[in-house]
Amino acid sequence: MEASEFRELMSPEGLRLLDSLPPYESASDVVRIVSRLRAEGHSPGLVAAVLSQAKLRARARTKFGEFASTMLFTEAGLEQASRLQVAALHAGRFAAAEIHWVADLGCGIGADALALAALQLEVTAVERDEVTAAIAAYNLASWSNARVEHAAAEDFDLTGIAGVYLDPARRSAGRRLSDPADWTPSLEFAFGLAERFPTGIKLGPGIDRSLIPPGCEAQWVSVDRDVVELGLWFGPLARSGVGRAALVLTEGGPAELTAAGDSPDAETGQLGEFLLEPDGAVIRARLIGDLARTVGARMLHPEIAYLTADEPVATPFASCFRVEAVLPLDVKILRKELSARGIGTLEIKKRGVDVDPAQFRTRLGLKGDGAATLILTRGDGRRIALLTQRV
């Protein structure tokens, strides 16, 4: 967000106008709202600013629920912000470790700082981008125990601070930065702080695992089967004996697998009546073997993250599918089989095979009222297609 757009938005007129906007879903809604606001005499810049912010608020509901309607956002800040549910878990670590003054370095729009403040911890939120810092200050205005500083994380004086949380910016000008040295602040800087303070570092879940230092707790978090982050925890923020963790958050509540380190793979075996797809957090944490042994399953292939079992398995750590047919991965054969079964709605999953599911779907000529899940993978030394139903 440009400074000029922010000034328009933060005017008394801008905030009143933003809060008065009705929800909109289509381009025609936008045209109608713009026409009305311009007819009422509002400037083009103000109209653009409030409509952009209204759009961000609508998107933010998936992360912040009803709180989104009282917050301000930037595009980049919303994308990187922790979901409120996950931010509350971050804050809980600091509270449990009795760390009462936390510096949130690179706070963005203030999501994690908000969760820390809600637990009555003292929070100093630091943000180098001036507009983003101002937005964080707006979002944290209700909390007397939180303050926002416009400064670079690397330059901020941490005297008196008891713990540190960092969420390094991993994008620049809309481009993802692959080199951790280019992040803001850099990963090297974050690890340096972890040697001095109880520290939590939020990273993307797909980070090169070789970068994870020994002695910390690495926790992958998924929300509704979407792996959203990797949290590295140091000092008293890390749990004793836990080096790897997979935290799964669903409507049914939280569930977690933990281990001292990567778990050994389970034994491979013949395809059973059921196939299990481990949650992405379990895969990233390399706890597939522990999951298999816990639920009495086996690996279908030593290098592919699918498990198989002879009985249905109910676990928050994997989706379960009943195998109805095992077919060769051949378009003609599959088209004939799907047609015979009247399957017109098909979910396609794949692992271990070089197939584009979208292109593959178009070649199947789907027709009918039935639905199924097609799993493309490898088994018994060949490429196979498993026609399944979710359990």
Rank of each mutant, 00 (worst) to 15 (best):
T308L: 03
R335T: 15
E337G: 01
V242A: 08
R61W: 05
R147H: 02
R32H: 03
A60E: 04
G206P: 14
T132Y: 01
G110Q: 09
G92N: 05
R176Y: 01
A146I: 09
Y165E: 02
R196D: 07
G108Y: 04
V282C: 06
I201K: 03
H100V: 13
R209C: 11
P22Q: 02
D356I: 02
T159Y: 02
P214T: 12
G108W: 03
I343M: 06
D224P: 11
R147I: 03
A309D: 07
W220I: 15
L9H: 12
D380Y: 06
E267M: 10
F234C: 14
S319D: 15
I304A: 11
E75Q: 05
K332G: 12
G381A: 01
R351G: 07
L249W: 09
S178Y: 11
P302W: 00
G77Y: 00
R171H: 09
A88V: 09
I33K: 00
I283S: 11
K349G: 04
K55L: 06
D310Q: 10
L187I: 14
I348A: 02
R175N: 06
L166D: 08
T199E: 08
S4P: 00
T362Y: 08
A255C: 12
V295E: 07
T199V: 15
M299Y: 13
A325F: 02
G204M: 14
L387G: 06
D19N: 11
P357Y: 03
S26A: 14
A136F: 04
S69K: 09
R239W: 05
A60C: 06
V164Y: 01
A136N: 05
P236R: 14
G163K: 09
H301T: 08
R335C: 13
A372S: 04
G235H: 10
I201F: 05
A125R: 05
T258G: 07
G215T: 12
A39Y: 01
F64W: 12
L72F: 01
P328G: 01
D354R: 07
A238L: 04
L300R: 02
L18V: 05
V248H: 06
A58Q: 12
L307V: 11
Y306P: 13
E311P: 06
F156G: 04
A266Y: 04
G65V: 12
K367W: 03
G243V: 12
S263G: 02
L166H: 09
P236E: 14
E273N: 09
V326F: 01
G261V: 10
K63R: 10
G215W: 10
D290G: 13
E256V: 15
L105Y: 08
V355D: 06
Y24T: 09
T70H: 12
L291K: 11
F191S: 13
G261P: 13
F321L: 03
W183Y: 09
R171C: 07
L287T: 08
D182E: 11
G92W: 00
V353A: 04
V148M: 01
G192I: 14
L51H: 05
G215H: 11
A371T: 13
E130P: 10
R382G: 07
V323Q: 01
T377R: 02
L114T: 14
G92T: 03
R239G: 04
V248Y: 03
F73C: 05
E127I: 07
R176V: 04
S222R: 07
R176W: 02
L364T: 05
